[in-house]
Amino acid sequence: MTTELTFTTGSASDGAVVLTAAGEIDMSNADAFADALVAAVADAGGARLIIDITEIHYLDSAGLAALFAQADHIELRTGPLLAPLLEVSGLTDLTTVHRA
């Protein structure tokens, strides 16, 4: 069974492209998350890209791997739940992380 995960796209007031993910990211849907990240990077065309994971309530190692694979092309927006995980994993050393 695939865990629920939804995506919406938009833009920030400064013109950055924003991909918002909501739900949970685990091994059942990490490929879909990785695909969404790759597509968002391509669609952004070099523009600033923010991945908003403030509405993600669970993120496993497969989801982290997808973020690591795109760390050079993205910024992250996170809430207090996932901020410690991003820091401990070392992702905060590779990309900009904004805390909501």
Rank of each mutant, 00 (worst) to 15 (best):
I56A: 01
P84A: 03
L86M: 09
S61I: 06
A66I: 04
L81A: 14
E75S: 00
A71T: 02
P84L: 06
T92F: 11
D52N: 02
L91W: 14
G90I: 07
E55T: 04
T54A: 12
A62I: 03
L67W: 13
D72K: 10
P80Y: 12
S61V: 00
G90Q: 09
S61D: 12
A66T: 07
I50C: 06
L82I: 12
T92W: 07
E75T: 02
A44P: 04
A69L: 03
P80E: 12
L76C: 03
H73C: 08
L81C: 07
L82F: 09
P84G: 06
L81E: 14
I51F: 06
P84M: 08
I51H: 05
R48T: 07
E75F: 10
E87K: 08
A71C: 10
F68Y: 08
Q70Y: 05
A62L: 01
T78S: 13
A71P: 11
D60T: 02
E87F: 11
L82R: 10
A42N: 09
L64F: 00
L91H: 12
S89E: 11
L67G: 09
G90W: 00
A62G: 09
V41A: 04
T92M: 03
G46C: 11
L59F: 13
Q70G: 06
D72F: 00
L85V: 15
D72H: 13
A40I: 12
S89A: 14
L86E: 01
H57T: 15
A62Q: 06
A44M: 11
I56L: 08
A65K: 09
V88K: 06
V88E: 10
D43A: 11
P84C: 02
F68R: 07
A66S: 05
L49T: 06
S61M: 05
E55S: 15
L59N: 02
Q70W: 07
I51W: 02
E87C: 10
G79L: 05
P84S: 10
A44C: 00
A69W: 07
D72V: 03
D52V: 04
V88G: 05
D60S: 10
G79S: 03
G45V: 13
L81F: 04
H57A: 15
H73E: 15
H73A: 15
F68S: 13
F68L: 13
I56K: 02
V88L: 13
V88S: 10
Q70H: 03
A65M: 14
L67C: 06
A62Y: 05
A69P: 08
L76N: 00
A66N: 03
T54G: 12
V41K: 14
